[in-house]
């Protein structure tokens, strides 16, 4: 196979990895802090994508404004998910928690189908393709990657420079001690869920400029996001980014060598094996 094609796939892998990392960080935050797996997390991304799509096409909003609105909308949605669904079942068995967010998954997918049918909808932005060393790279992907990096940096500064951000990191280390510091757990959980939602919203914005959206979009990126979070190690932001890049390279390069489905199969098998070898994540710490 042509080396340039592989190089192109590798670069595309990195570009996809940026957006995946954004998702993985958002989910990692919620999983690590609230200790609940939001099975429906990536379906929030789908909501963000639709929000941008409709604001731009039906209401004629400029894209940047629609993007900001979508991020805000999904952040509020994340807050509501916590308030309405998660907080009543915080003490329930894990299987119930999985099911409640699973119900949200059915709900979001079906309601989107009801409202907007199963049509694939695309913004048709017609962004240029950039040629670098014989590789053809989509400008939309470069743009998405840049904003993904900015989003991650924003999260990093929030988590390290602010009181509430530092408290969010501390929660996963000692849930009880953080209450003794005067932090209200309910508030910490709410802020975490809103930030997680906002990350999903941003990912939605970055995906709608590259892909078309449909009600089952979450099924494409959902499972891979979960396994990236586990592989990277809970509460390990750097690990989440590395795992995202590894997985997106597997998917991207595997996609042109074999098929997209087989590439995903390889990614999942890598995950299953890695769990056995290093249950705490490839870059996780042993407790």
């Amino acid at each position: 196979m042509d080396a340039v094609l592989i190089a192109e796939a590798a670069v595309n892998g990195i570009l996809l990895g940026g957006v995946l990392a954004l998702l993985a960080l958002g989910l990692n935050l919620i999983f690590g802090v609230v200790d609940i797996v939001w099975i429906a997390y990536v379906d929030l991304v789908m909501v963000g994508m639709y929000a941008v799509y409709w604001l731009v096409t039906a209401y004629g909003w400029p894209l940047p404004l629609a993007a900001v609105a979508a991020v805000a909308l999904v952040a509020v949605l994340g807050l509501l998910v916590h308030l309405l669904i998660i907080s009543p079942i915080l003490a329930s068995p894990p299987v119930n928690q999985l099911l409640a967010t699973g119900g949200l998954l059915f709900f979001l997918q079906a309601f989107a189908t009801f409202l907007w049918t199963t049509d694939h909808r695309s913004l048709r932005l017609a962004l240029p393709v950039v040629e670098v060393f014989g590789m053809y790279l989509s400008f939309a992907r470069l743009l998405a990657f840049t904003f993904a990096i900015l989003g991650m940096l924003g999260l990093y500064f929030f988590l390290t420079r602010t009181y509430i951000g530092t408290a969010i990191r501390a929660v996963s280390q000692d849930r009880e001690a953080i209450a003794l510091m005067g932090a209200d757990m309910r508030r910490v959980y709410l802020v975490t869920s809103a930030i997680g939602g906002g990350m999903a919203g941003l990912a939605g914005v970055l995906l709608i400029i590259q892909y078309s959206v449909h009600p089952h979009f979450g099924a494409t990126f959902g499972p891979i996001t979960f396994i990236i979070v586990v592989m990277g190690g809970l509460g390990n932001m750097f690990g989440a980014v590395v795992a995202s890049l590894v997985m997106s390279e597997v998917i991207s390069i595997g996609g042109i060598l074999a098929s997209t489905e087989m590439a995903y199969v390889v990614a999942f098998v890598i995950f299953i094996v890695s769990i056995f070898v290093r249950p705490e994540g490839i870059l996780g710490r042993r407790e």
Binding site: I85, G103, F107, T117
Partner: peptide
């Protein structure tokens, strides 16, 4: 289309809660 599943999902969430 989708309404049946929507209610199914809602019912699931409510039952679990």
């Amino acid at each position: 289309l989708g309404m049946a599943e929507t209610i199914y999902g809602l019912a699931l969430i409510l039952i679990i809660i």
